[in-house]
Design a protein around this nucleic acid. Structure first.
Lengths: 326, 326
DNA sequence: CTGAAAGCGCTTACAG
DNA sequence: CTGAAAGCGCTTACAG
């Protein structure tokens, strides 16, 4: 049982491969008799014909694969949701998602040259050199990035604003001395630093002292140490890098014999399922992953000339979900 | 700046494309002068030559893409880790991972026929028809599946054993009336049912009554309702589908004014970061995702004749991590 | 309105 | 030891 080709469909339909190609690609500029069209379509379906992706790619110099480059750290549930949405949205246009997890400093160029994707979606900042080379080769590059990326076609979630939102919320709860619970994982440092910058800026804006910054491991002992340090420094509000760190801080506060939010208020980022059922329920920053995914998908389709409409930047990208911990 | 082809390398090196192909594919059965070999290698590097994946795929009828089929629900952090490991392990052999998230009942056949992957990795059970068609087309199919899959080349995490482990642990803590906290999400029903079956079997083995089964939403109210029901039924130990459900149960116990583990012991599955810092710290079943990923990668490479050694089934696939909640 | 022919970039029998 | 030629499956000018 070898592969069914367009030649098979042509022979069975009594037409040439050219005609088969015209029919199957629904070329509007070519006029065909309806009878021929129907016959070819019917034969293709009956034979279970699927065009060979490699052959099309070789012919056109462009595959129908979208190369999706991920950072080598896990963003958590967000990345799952994002990929899920992207895969679905792109599949509707016949595009498949090829996931590449970026490891070490191995150059991206080998991969994209080999795969000849029709577009590249970066969920992390590329090296400038890689991006330029891809654009030169005519491959649209769309990406999510950190806030100060200068590319106009890059959708950046303003990480600093997330920190600002956290700080503003703590201030609205009457907290005047803040701390930042940083992650210990260096791989997320780029994100953590920008969120911290947002907290810093907000403190300055509100005329508060600089926030105390402490790295917190995801265990009770580490968090309790941090909490004791902050308490000694008069801290009454803690902005955590994400919900996992925030949950560790909650545990640290308990271990230190203090009360949330009485002694110290805590706010995270992500709204993971565990946040809602924490003790006390964790206030957090919710991110509209769906909207971000939809934006990226549309931006990508637009870059390929496949979108119905240009992408609309989502406006409510994130907001505070107030709960008992603040 | 158009693509660098093997013809370019041939011309620059003063040899034929045949020779270039022989050198670059390091064919052991062909003897070439070392000088020629070096010259070709050097030219290829200087020109930045990358063989066209589509062209190779068209020629050989097989791409270097591994199609990885995921279920349409998110398994959580486990899937991230798994993909991460797989991508890395396969990249060492020049293989790329193409992720496909299964949606609805759309047939898999279109995708694999179009992509012509060199292998398919299923992280969910396939339809028997799809699997047979792929095997007939000569595409190795490797997969993780639920426990009672009959295929010998399928690596199945025995889901029922996870439930059994949970129940055994609760019994070892002196609990004689158990409940099962099931997820509300139908998409994970296949997993949940098998884990529950394991709990049931363990209860029978220990001469305990049938476990009470209640679906628990990931919020306090739903969990509190469930807890009150169980308490009225004399339940003293709860096995939860996963850690997220278990954390909800902890919150429900608190809301119901009861004590963990005094009144009721709780055990989850996954060991997510939040489990360790929960109040009280959550006992859970740890799964060796790394080992599973390594096994799958090796099994896949073996099926392709690329592995150094046949895969060794990991033995410690999971074990209980005892903490304060039991 | 439809077909014969070329060519995308690669590898591999087959000759020299 | 190396080269000329064919062919993987597709699409698209170019002729009829």
């Amino acid at each position: 049982m070898s592969r069914v080709t367009s030649a098979d469909v042509a022979r069975e339909s009594g037409v040439s491969r050219t005609t088969v190609s015209y029919v199957l690609n629904a070329r509007a500029d070519v006029v065909l008799t309806e009878a021929t069209r129907q016959r070819v379509l019917e034969t293709a379906a009956r034979l279970g014909y699927t065009p060979s992706a490699p052959a099309r790619a070789l012919r056109s110099g462009r595959s129908d694969l979208v190369l999706c480059v991920l950072p080598d750290w896990t963003i958590g549930p967000a990345i799952d949701t994002l990929l899920d949405h992207l895969t679905t949205a792109l599949a509707e246009h016949g595009l498949s998602v090829l996931v590449h997890i970026r490891r070490g400093a191995r150059p991206l160029s080998d991969l994209w040259r080999a795969v000849t994707p029709c577009a590249v979606l970066g969920l992390l900042p590329f090296g400038e050199q890689d991006a330029r080379a891809m654009r030169q080769a005519g491959i649209p590059v769309v990406g999510a990035a950190l806030d100060e990326d200068p590319q106009p076609d890059v959708f950046a979630v303003p990480q600093a604003s997330i920190g600002g939102l956290q700080a503003d919320h703590l201030v609205s709860r009457g907290r005047r001395v803040l701390a930042y619970a940083a992650p210990h994982d260096d791989r997320v440092a780029a994100f953590a630093d920008r969120r911290l910058a947002g907290v810093r800026a907000a403190c300055e804006r509100h005329g508060l002292p600089e926030p105390l910054v402490t790295a917190v491991d995801l265990d009770v002992a580490s968090a309790a140490d941090a909490v004791r340090g902050w308490h000694a420094g008069g801290v009454t509000g803690v902005a955590a890098y994400n919900d996992e760190v925030a949950l560790a801080v909650l545990a640290g506060v308990r271990a230190a014999g203090l009360d949330v939010p009485g002694d110290v208020a805590v706010i995270g980022v992500d709204d993971i399922p565990a946040a809602r059922v924490a003790a006390p329920a964790l206030t957090t920053v919710w991110q509209a992953i769906d909207a971000q995914a939809a934006y990226l998908a549309t931006a990508l389709l637009a870059a390929l000339g496949l979108a119905d409409a240009p992408p609309e930047r989502p406006d409510d990208v994130f907001h505070v979900v107030p709960r008992a911990s603040t």
